[in-house]
Every structure is written in structure tokens, then in C-alpha cells.
């Protein structure tokens, strides 16, 4: 934490978030300055010092710090210090890929019904912590509390929407193929494997959910790099995921720099696909080129409107089609 940000802020944004849901963010900032809360002044009762949350990575169902020991400052849209986020390294990326790979057989092998229930559970958990996320989204994106709450609602709804896809996508994307011969022939979609997801920079939470849910609902596992300058909603989402029956390693959340974590993910030989939503321009081109090394499936950045009806495309982008033949005869 730098002196500059400490002095520059009359209070931490995290104090302003207090009073909502859950006491973990209530209280004053570490600056010791008075709160802007009117009541605080009137009562003259010594202000309670709040407990800050240490934001951590989410890898394999655990919450480690970056192996590098580094953090970076996260501020709100006005430059006010919010927290120190772990500055993920290439080794964190490597560990996350290992965790995602380990989780893949179990998650892809789970029934679609089970995956749908778990995604729905994520929505339930998120709903219960909606105020917390509204506050974090408001800070992260400079939105009013009402607008931020609407974003969180949309994110909850998105989880629900994708949860319902789990046992339908195969019926939409698969096919029975009438081949010209005595063969039973069926095409079914299957998850492609471990998907690296560079979460969108312009939508720290709804955008994040909109790229993570379609990857995992079909049975892929994900390594997600949170929006670089607004990683806190993503890191908090990990807490929701950890308490939603989602097996450890299915979603792994990193925070840090696209420039640092993107290339090792794009070049990783055990990553099957990459969503470049959070990259742009020359950086995206470089990552796509790196992804060619093992022919990752690449979803290019496309200026997506994260509030719009997503359609099935993001799910389909990370599905393989497997076609099975068998003779018909006695």
C-alpha cells in the first residue's frame, strides 16, 4: 500500500461499502480517519475498526497467495485504494492449469444434471451475497449502487441461464446422422478440456460470469485471469464458487497482468483453448499466435455487449464434436 493512495483517499471505498450485507467489510479503514457516515459523528462512539479482506488467488479449490509473493494495488474508478490483489505469476498460471487438468475428468464425467445443479447453486450463493458484490462492482466499475445491483442481478440470472443449458446443449449441438449404410451414427458435443479465460476488462463481474459459466457448464475446466484493473469481484466470486459444491480446480481464478499471465497460458501445451475476451489489439494477436503452438481453440475478442442475451456461441466455442459409428446387424 502506498502512502500516496492512503493520503489521497479520505476514506477507503471499502468503508463506504459497510453496513450492507455481512460484517466483514464494516468499519473504518486503516487510515484512522473519520468515516463519512453521518451517524458516526453524532454518536461520538469510537468507531469500530473494520476487518479487511485479504484477496487471494483461487487454485484447485484453495486460496493461495501468489507464489511470487507479489501484490498490486487495486483502486476504484476514482483512484481510491481498494485492496491489494495478488499479482499472479507464470508459475501461478502453471499451478492453475495443473489444478484444472486434474479436475477435468471428474467434472466432464459428472452428469449434465449434476453440473446444472451446481451452477444453479452458484447462482443461489451469489444471490445471498448480492449486496457484497454490488458494492464491489460499484467500486470496480464506478457504478451507482443501483446500477451495480442490477449488474449483480444479471450475473445471478446468467448463472441460472447457463445452469439450465447443461443438459440441453447436447441436444442442440449434437445430431443423429443418417449415413448411407447399416451404421448407427451419432454426434455428441464434448468439452474440449482446460480452457484459459482472459476475462473482459470492461465488465469486471457480469462479463466475468458471462465468460466463465459457458466454459464450465459443458464440462470444461477453466483458468480465469480476472479483469486486470478490477479483479476484486472475480476474486470474491471464487469464495462463492468454493461454497457451491463446485469441485476444486474446475474454476481457478488468477489476478494479475494480461501481459504477464496471458502468454504462459496461451503457450501452455496442456491448455486446450483460450478465450481472449480480455485481450485486445496486438496483445490479442500475439496470444492467438502463441496459442497456435498446440492448436488451441481460440475465441477472439469481439467487443461483446455483456448485457445482451448471450446465445449459445460461447458454449459451442469450447465444445468438440465426437462422432461415434457402430454397425447395425445381427
Amino acid at each position: 500500500m502506498s502512502e500516496k493512495s492512503r493520503k489521497g483517499a479520505r476514506t477507503s471505498s471499502r468503508d463506504r461499502a459497510a453496513g450492507g450485507n455481512g460484517g466483514d467489510r464494516a468499519g473504518t479503514g486503516r487510515t484512522g480517519r473519520t468515516s463519512s457516515d453521518d451517524k458516526a459523528g453524532k454518536t461520538a462512539v469510537p468507531e469500530r475498526v473494520s476487518v479487511f479482506k485479504t484477496y487471494k488467488l483461487f487454485i484447485g479449490g484453495k486460496f493461495p497467495r501468489s507464489e511470487s509473493g507479489r501484490v498490486y494495488e487495486v483502486t476504484d474508478s476514482k483512484g481510491t485504494w481498494l485492496a491489494n490483489a495478488p499479482l499472479g505469476s507464470r508459475k501461478d498460471a502453471r499451478d492453475a492449469v495443473v489444478a484444472a487438468r486434474k479436475a477435468f475428468p471428474g467434472w466432464s464425467g459428472a452428469t449434465a444434471y449434476n453440473r446444472g445443479q451446481i451452477l444453479y447453486r452458484v447462482a443461489e450463493m451469489l444471490q445471498g451475497r448480492a449486496d457484497q458484490f454490488a458494492a464491489e462492482v460499484a467500486d470496480a466499475e464506478g457504478l451507482s449502487r443501483a446500477k451495480a445491483a442490477a449488474v449483480v442481478d444479471a450475473a445471478v440470472d446468467r448463472w441460472v441461464w447457463y445452469a439450465g443449458w447443461s443438459d440441453k446443449v447436447a441436444q442442440v449441438a449434437g445430431s443423429a446422422n443418417p449415413v448411407a449404410g447399416p451404421y448407427f451414427n451419432l454426434s455428441v458435443p464434448e468439452p474440449t478440456g482446460v480452457v484459459a479465460v482472459l476475462a473482459p476488462q470492461d465488465s469486471s463481474f457480469l462479463g466475468l460470469v458471462s465468460v466463465v459459466a459457458p466454459v464450465v457448464v459443458t464440462g470444461n475446466t477453466a483458468v480465469v485471469l480476472a479483469a486486470e484493473s478490477a479483479p476484486l469481484p472475480a476474486l470474491s466470486l471464487a469464495e462463492v464458487l468454493a461454497t457451491s459444491d463446485l469441485p476444486g480446480g474446475v474454476v481457478n481464478v488468477l489476478s494479475g497482468r494480461v501481459a504477464e499471465v496471458g502468454p504462459p497460458l496461451a503457450g501452455h501445451q496442456d491448455v486446450n483453448a483460450i478465450d481472449l475476451a480480455g485481450a485486445a489489439g496486438q496483445r490479442a494477436a500475439e496470444l492467438e499466435a502463441a496459442a497456435a503452438e498446440n492448436l488451441k481453440r481460440v475465441l477472439r475478442p469481439a467487443g461483446t455487449d455483456w448485457t445482451a442475451d448471450p446465445g449459445p456461441d460461447r458454449m459451442l466455442a469450447f465444445l468438440e464434436t465426437k462422432t461415434v459409428w457402430h454397425p447395425i446387424g445381427v
Binding site: 445430431s175 446422422n177 443418417p178 449415413v179 448411407a180 449404410g181 451404421y183 451414427n185 454426434s187 474440449t192 486446450n272 498446440n294 492448436l295 481453440r297 468438440e320 464434436t321 465426437k322 462422432t323 461415434v324 459409428w325 457402430h326 454397425p327
Partner: peptide, 28 residues
């Protein structure tokens, strides 16, 4: 694998999607 032949092999048909996983390519 993108195509699994059970009790047969190397069968092809225009109505049957063909293409690979991993470094065998993408698209069908």
C-alpha cells in the same frame, strides 16, 4: 477423438461430421 469407430473403421459419410480434437485440428 473426433471420430470413434466401434466394430468398424475408416467409414465416412457426407452426413457424418469429421474432424479432430487437440492437435488434429478444429472445426468439423
Amino acid at each position: 477423438a473426433g471420430v470413434v469407430w466401434a466394430n468398424t473403421f475408416n467409414r465416412f459419410d457426407p452426413s457424418s461430421p469429421f474432424g479432430g480434437y487437440k492437435e488434429s485440428g478444429y472445426g468439423r
